[in-house]
Design a protein around this nucleic acid. Structure first.
Length: 529
RNA sequence: GGCCCCAUCGUCUAGUCAGGCCUAGGACACCAGGUUUUCAUCCUGGCGACGGGGGUUCAAAUCCCCCUGGGGUCACCA
């Protein structure tokens, strides 16, 4: 045995029915949500990182439920035992926490329809599969993988539509049971009704309107594999039904699965949920976003230093607009205004520039303390921030962040903007352009020398951020220097950069001693050659 | 290729369902000015789209049809 439940026995080891008695682990009252309560779900497959498109799908599901007093469910679709890993599941949940998306039911918090990992619901799935076989709504197929491969090759050669030909569709049921009982390997296929008599499945997609599929185009798909494990389309329906999901909001790639799923709901004697198929998020090549054309993993955007609020806001803008005018809005406004019906139909190309712009907007608008807190890991990684420094030099760090905040868009850009503060005063690296400009100014060395002694002699109470700019301007006036002829060399001497924070901030951040040291070093450097 | 979905500025979109208020609005990007000690922020302005063709109508970005273009999907993956 390979550890999987025996597909040929009907006994469900796990009950997936709602827990009607008592309360669950979260202490909810012992009542089921009424059928009118909106219930949405996001069902990630823990076989890799959370995709940025998946994050948007989850966000829309979340917003839709939250806006209607409904519940948002997280269900782990780990029906692929080979590729599913718990660490991926953990990472996916972390991604949602980072975005600020919370869930009412899920593998970690439980809920009235637990368990929320599909691998733990296998008994219920198989029970249903056998129920359908018994009713003749599904059947056993003894075709081997090789056999099906040949079938496909033949169809391909004849340029026919690739589809299972239903070769075991009409096998006598008793005969099938005998072969199964004898241990012959087989799958269980769904019997699509009215394939040859013009049957069709029609449904009203909340986003796309009426969509129809001819049953002639829907094959008798596999519900249970040879090894006894249930497949996605089958499990998905069982669980959506058991978990009383009312609205299935998912990516457009699932549109073609919908007739299969609706047919299964009907076979099970259940009403299908409302479907809404979201347009795809496209890469710069106009195709479904892939690693080649952009960062597909949500995690990449956290690492790149985007504020999560900006990512959420940006994801909203991919396929949805608040009113067509306002671009910047928060989660609560999303929840208040979002309706799946307003989502656009066409795919959207992911625009990193616009995301970066939004990130800058959020970065500048948030409390300074928050920027500092979020930038800290990046500063630490760059070696600029050591343990305890944030507390010991709180004023320094606050000012440092404030001084460059409107000059960056991502947390990750902050270290580079502050690196000059941590360079050695005697051999500060100079930007080539900045140096050239300074050297072109014949009096620069003399000006810097004058500034050095002026600053060295400036009384402490006048060496303050609020007044330093005026002090410098007055000094310029008193010396008969033009502002530009003084500030440019001063900036080069202090920062080595062509641009950057206000010089008053730089002086305070460096402190009088280091400022004067840098000025003196610059004078020497300019006169040396 | 079969089936399905889609189609407004370079990009994200509003407008399309209930045709006139649209000489098509906003945002990003880009360009040009302004503010500023630099860079940036900020402000002002500019550039820039209804894929094509038929209909219906007094009137079409909006409704219908065809074409073209793009995408998705065709697994014992999800």
């Amino acid at each position: 045995m390979d550890g999987r439940p025996d597909p040929y026995s009907a006994g469900p080891p796990v009950s997936c029915r709602p827990n009607r008695a008592g309360t669950n682990s979260r202490g909810w009252p012992s009542q089921e949500p009424s059928m009118t309560t909106v219930r949405t779900r996001f069902a990630p497959s823990p076989t890799g990182a959370l995709h940025i498109g998946g994050a948007r799908t989850a966000l829309f599901n979340w917003a839709f439920a939250r806006g209607r007093g409904g519940r948002f469910v997280l269900r782990v679709e780990d029906t692929d035992p080979e590729r599913s890993k718990r660490e991926y599941e953990d990472a996916i949940l972390d991604g949602f926490r980072w975005l600020g998306i919370d869930w009412d039911e899920g593998p970690d918090v439980g809920g009235p329809f637990a368990p929320y990992r599909q691998s733990e619901r296998a008994g219920r799935h198989l029970e249903r599969a056998h129920e359908l076989v018994a009713k003749g709504l599904a059947y056993r197929c003894f075709a081997t993988a090789e056999e099906l491969g040949e079938l496909r090759a033949g169809q391909e050669a004849r340029k026919e539509t690739l589809r299972y030909d239903g070769r075991y569709r009409t096998l006598d049921a008793a005969e099938a049971e005998r072969r199964a009982a004898a241990g012959e390997a087989h799958t269980i296929r769904f019997r699509v009704p009215d394939q040859d008599s013009g049957g069709e499945t029609v449904f009203d997609d909340s986003i796309r309107g009426r969509v129809r599929f001819s049953h002639a185009e829907v094959e008798d798909w596999i519900m249970v594999r040879t090894d006894g494990s249930p497949t996605y389309n089958f499990v998905c329906v069982c669980d959506d039904a058991d978990m009383q999901i009312t609205h299935v909001v998912r990516g457009e790639e699932h549109l073609v699965n919908t007739p299969k799923q609706i047919l299964l709901f009907r076979a099970l004697g259940l009403e299908p949920p409302v479907y809404a198929h979201l347009p795809l998020i496209l890469g710069t090549d106009g195709k479904k976003m892939s690693k080649r054309t952009g960062d597909t993993a949500l995690e990449a955007y956290r690492v790149a230093g985007h504020p999560p609020e900006a990512v959420v806001n940006f994801l909203c803008l991919q396929g949805w607009a608040l009113d067509g005018e306002r671009e910047v809005f928060d989660r609560s406004e999303l929840v208040e205004h979002f309706d799946v019906k307003d989502v656009s139909k066409g795919g959207s190309i992911f625009d990193p520039d616009k995301l970066a712009w939004l990130s800058g907007e959020y970065l500048r608008a948030e409390p300074l303390e928050q920027t500092l807190e979020r930038a800290a890991p990046f500063l630490a990684a760059a070696g600029l921030l050591v343990d305890g420094d944030l507390e010991e030099r709180a004023d320094f760090w606050r000012l440092a962040i404030e001084s460059i905040r409107e000059r960056v868009r991502l947390y990750a850009e902050i270290p580079a903007k502050l690196a000059f503060l941590f360079a050695p005063d005697s051999v500060l690296p100079w930007d080539a352009g900045a140096e050239a400009k300074t050297r072109a100014n014949a009096g620069a060395a003399d000006v810097l020398e004058g500034l050095a002694s002026f600053l060295a002699d400036l009384p402490d109470e006048r060496f303050r951020r609020a007044t330093l700019a005026d002090e410098l301007k007055q000094w310029c006036a008193s010396q008969g220097h033009k502002l530009g002829a003084v500030f440019q060399p001063l900036r080069t001497a202090l920062t080595g950069e062509p641009g950057g924070p206000e010089l008053a901030d730089v002086l305070v951040l460096l402190g009088r001693g280091r400022s004067v040291a840098r000025l003196t070093a610059a004078v020497g450097r300019l006169r040396a050659s």
